[in-house]
Nucleic acid binder design. Sequence first.
DNA 1: CCGATTCTTTATGCATTCTTTACGCGCCGC
DNA 2: GCGGCGCGTAAAGAATGCATAAAGAATCGG
Lengths: 227, 227
Amino acid sequence: MTTILLVEDEPEIRRFLRTALGAEGYRVVESPSGQRGSIDAGTHKPDLAIVDLGLPDFDGKEVIRRIRQWSGMPIVVLSARAQERSKIEALDAGADDYITKPFGVGELLARVRAALRHAARSPAGQVLQLGAASVELEKRRAQRDGAEVHLTPIEFRLLACLAKHLGMVVTHRQLLAEVWGPTHVEHTHYLRIYMKQLRDKLEVDPVQPRYLLTEPGVGYRLVSEED
Amino acid sequence: MTTILLVEDEPEIRRFLRTALGAEGYRVVESPSGQRGSIDAGTHKPDLAIVDLGLPDFDGKEVIRRIRQWSGMPIVVLSARAQERSKIEALDAGADDYITKPFGVGELLARVRAALRHAARSPAGQVLQLGAASVELEKRRAQRDGAEVHLTPIEFRLLACLAKHLGMVVTHRQLLAEVWGPTHVEHTHYLRIYMKQLRDKLEVDPVQPRYLLTEPGVGYRLVSEED
DNA sequence: CCGATTCTTTATGCATTCTTTACGCGCCGC
DNA sequence: GCGGCGCGTAAAGAATGCATAAAGAATCGG
C-alpha cells in the first residue's frame, strides 16, 4: 500500500488532507512539526512526502534537506502565496513539485499521482514522446515526424535535466548549475535562449508550448503525453 | 555471491543503500571513510565498488586512484555535485560510471547491474561488431565487408582502449595517457587525427559516426550494436 | 637503405557556445 | 497610467573546440 507522509502543523488542513488522501486509498502518516517530520520520514519509509513550508519549529526547507540526505523519495511542497522566495528555495533544496494555497483537492491529488508515477518509472522509460517528436535519452538521439533532429550538446543536457524530473518543476538555478556549472547560476538569459531553441526543434507550435512549459518566476517543467 | 563495497560516510545513506542492495541479493561491505575504503577494497575483494566523492578524510578520487593501482573492478561514483569538472576528474581517476545525488534506487541498481554486466563480458567475447566492420581484439585483426582492414599499432591501441570501456565515456586524458603515455596528456590534437583515421577505416559514414562517438568537451565513446 | 608509421606543425572551415544589445509584451505595484 | 520586471524573441561578433587536410621530419623494422 502506498504511504504518504504529511508534515503540516495546522490541524484543520491536516484533517482535510487526511480524508482526501485516505479516500484515494493512500495510507497517511501525519507529523505536526518539522522535527517529527524528518524523523518519521526515516521510520515510516513513506513513498512520498507532502511538506508545508510554514512550520512553527523550523522551516520546511530544512525538512526537505534532511530527507534528501538519504532518500530520493518524491516531495511535494505546500506554500502560501506570500512565500514565493521560500518556495523556490524549497525546490532548490530538492523538492519535486509545489502547490500554492489555497488549492483544490483535485489539483493536489493530480500532483501526488504525477509524482508517484514519476518515481515509479524513473529508472526505466528512456524514450520521451512529445507529440510529433520523440527523444531517446540514452542514445542521444531525437526524431521529429520521422526525420532525425540534431540537438547540440547544451540543448541535449538541458533536455535531459528536465527529463530527469519529468512532470516536475526544475528551478532556474538547478538547470543552470547542472548544464552550465555552478558558476553560471545567474545567467538566466542563457536558459531563455536555449529553451527557445529546444521549443523550435521539438514543439509543434513553439509559441504555445505543450511540453516544454514555463513556470513563471520559478523555472521550467517538461511534461510528456499524459498529464 | 556478488559482493559490493560501499564507501560512504553518511550513516543514513549507508543504511538506505545497504537495504536496497541487500534486497537485490548482493553482499554489502561498508566503509565509513576513504582510508578504510581503500583497505577494504583489498581485503574483501569486492566485485564492484560504490564510492562517494564527498568523504571526510580524503577525496573520493583518491580512493579510486588507489583501487585502480591494482584492480580493474568496476567503480561507480556517487556525487552531490552535478558539474562536468568533477565528473571528468572522477572518470580520469578511473571511475566507470557516475550518479548524481539525489538519485532513485532504481537508477542506482540499473547502473550497478550495467557495470557488473560490462565487467563480466569484458575479458571474454572480444569480437566487436560495428555495422559493416568487425574487430577481433585478441587477434589484433579487423574486417570490413569481408575484406581485411589494416590497423596501425596506435590505431589499434586507441580502439582497444575505447573497447575496454565499451559504451562508456573515456576522457581525452585517459586515452592520451594509455595510448601515448602520461607525458602526452596535452596533445588532444593527436586524438582527433587518429580518431579520424579509425572512423575512415571502420565507420560506414565517417562524417556521421555511429560507433566512434564524440563527447564534446569530455572525450570519446565507443558503442557497439546492442546497448 | 627503404618503406611504413608516427610525430609534429600549420592551416582552413564549420559548429557551437559565449556574451551582449535590443525590442515587444504582459503583469504588477505605485 | 507609468515604470519596472520577467519572459520571449531576434541578431551578431568573438571565442572556442572539433574535423579535416596536408606535409616535412623522425623513427623503426626488414
